[in-house]
């Protein structure tokens, strides 16, 4: 009985095979996209993967996708790209990055009822991606300031000022990737599973949203 309950809870949390496949696809998109675009600061695919996880898949994927992507990327970043930082700074900044992307997933989850295979839905996701990108950057700036720049006597306003060109690039990244991957992902998620069921709902026909 307990086993069945656990199995049922996992099924409700993860969804069926299709939803799981789409969730894994988003994790791959976040990881591979970030690694391929490493030389382009703030041009990244973790944001769009987190947003789509919440707004299209929902369920546990809202947090599983950003957490899984960052569980792979953060050790790589601290080990290879920015080696040598203090443990406190690494943990502190990682907290802000992880919580920031989980927030993006949750923000996507909040508009999930309005996301369908429609141009309006892609437009909605693209539009909300702009303030969410700015909010994410300001949030992670708090972490950068507290753990890296505050000890150096640099005030938060200066850190925000330095961030401006990077945030402009980050917004550009979101405006490219959210409609690009968003429309493709919506097609995958909402594509009918059988020829006789053209109105099949996203990923899970029995999805209670």
């Amino acid at each position: 009985m307990t086993r069945d309950r656990i199995r049922g809870a996992i099924h409700r949390g993860l969804g069926g095979r299709r939803t799981i496949s789409l969730g894994l696809l988003l994790i791959s998109l976040g990881v591979v996209g970030k690694l391929v675009l490493l030389r382009y600061a703030n041009i990244e695919t973790v944001f769009v993967a987190s947003l789509l996880a919440g707004s299209v898949l929902g369920r546990w994927w809202t947090v599983i996708v950003p957490l899984s992507i960052l569980a792979i990327l953060q050790p790589l970043a601290w080990g290879a790209l920015y080696p040598g930082y203090d443990l406190e700074a690494m943990l502190g900044i990682t907290f802000f990055v992880v919580s920031g992307f989980v927030f993006i997933g949750l923000a996507g989850r909040s508009v999930r009822r309005r996301v369908l295979l429609r141009v309006k839905s892609v437009a909605l996701l693209t539009t909300i991606s702009v303030p969410l990108t700015i909010a994410y950057d300001v949030w992670t700036d708090v972490g950068d300031w507290y753990f890296l720049f505050r000890p150096a006597g640099i005030d938060f306003a200066t850190v925000l000022w330095w961030q401006v060109p990077f945030t402009v690039v980050h917004v550009l990244s979101s405006l490219i990737f959210v409609p690009l991957f968003g429309s493709g992902f919506l097609m995958l998620a909402y594509a009918p599973t059988t020829a006789g069921n053209p109105k099949a709902s996203p990923a899970e026909p029995t999805d209670s949203r």
Binding site: R39, Y40, A41, N42, I43, L81, Y82, P83, G84, Y85, D86, A89, L148, P151, A152, P165, F166, V169
Partner: peptide, 24 residues
Amino acid sequence: WVDFAIPPGAFVTAINGTVNGQGG
């Protein structure tokens, strides 16, 4: 160093074995 393309610029990470982040 890490060579960023967008925004363009070189970010020096270590000189003579002294790596960014050591001792803050």
